[in-house]
């Protein structure tokens, strides 16, 4: 998914749904979801095997292990995935506006089209501010969790 240029996702989306907000949304999801999936998978798999074994020894069933052990311990990694996914979704804003997503991305697109530097710059800065806000909040949340769990000590 990540090896393809992001423009390519627009083609099937537009072919099936026509231009508009829905295909833009779909293309964005397809483009941005992989880090979340990958990091969640990585996080769940890299939970300390000793803890998993202990949990098994106490007679837990798979869902008790998933919700009681794996997800809580993998949460910092999962949140890093959420963070990455949000960043990539924002990267799609301008591209998706080409197929009628509207919003700030469209302002940038118009700015380029009409050579209105101020409009493009202003909308562009808006996207950047949005990205910084999202990034900082999710990262801070992840760090807080990490400190609470003490993941770094637990893995040594």
């Amino acid at each position: 998914m990540q090896t393809l240029p992001s423009f390519v996702y627009l083609i099937p989306a537009v072919m099936i749904f026509g231009p508009g907000k829905i295909p833009a949304l779909i293309a964005t999801i397809v483009y941005a979801a992989p880090p979340l999936v990958r990091l969640t998978d990585l996080g769940l798999r890299s939970v300390d095997p000793a803890v998993m074994e202990a949990s098994r020894a106490f007679g837990t069933n798979p869902s008790q292990r998933l919700f009681g052990v794996q997800i809580p311990l993998a949460l910092p990694t999962i949140l890093a995935g959420v963070n990455q996914t949000i960043m990539m979704a924002l990267a799609m804003v301008v591209i998706a506006s080409m197929i009628g997503a509207g919003g700030l991305g469209y302002q940038v697109l118009q700015g380029i089209g009409r050579l209105e530097v101020s409009r493009g710059l202003f909308a562009g800065l808006g996207i950047v501010v949005l990205a910084i806000v999202f990034d900082r909040t999710t990262q801070a949340f992840g760090k807080q969790l990490q400190a609470k769990i003490g993941i770094t000590e637990a893995r040594t």
């Binding site: 000793a50 803890v51 074994e53 202990a54 007679g59 609470k148």
Partner: peptide
């Protein structure tokens, strides 16, 4: 049955403790 057995018949202590850090 095995899960019920582990819950009620045997308890285990581990070298690496296996405690839940959260």
């Amino acid at each position: 049955e095995l899960r019920a057995f582990r819950r009620t018949k045997v308890a285990m202590v581990f070298q690496k403790f296996g405690l839940l850090p959260h």
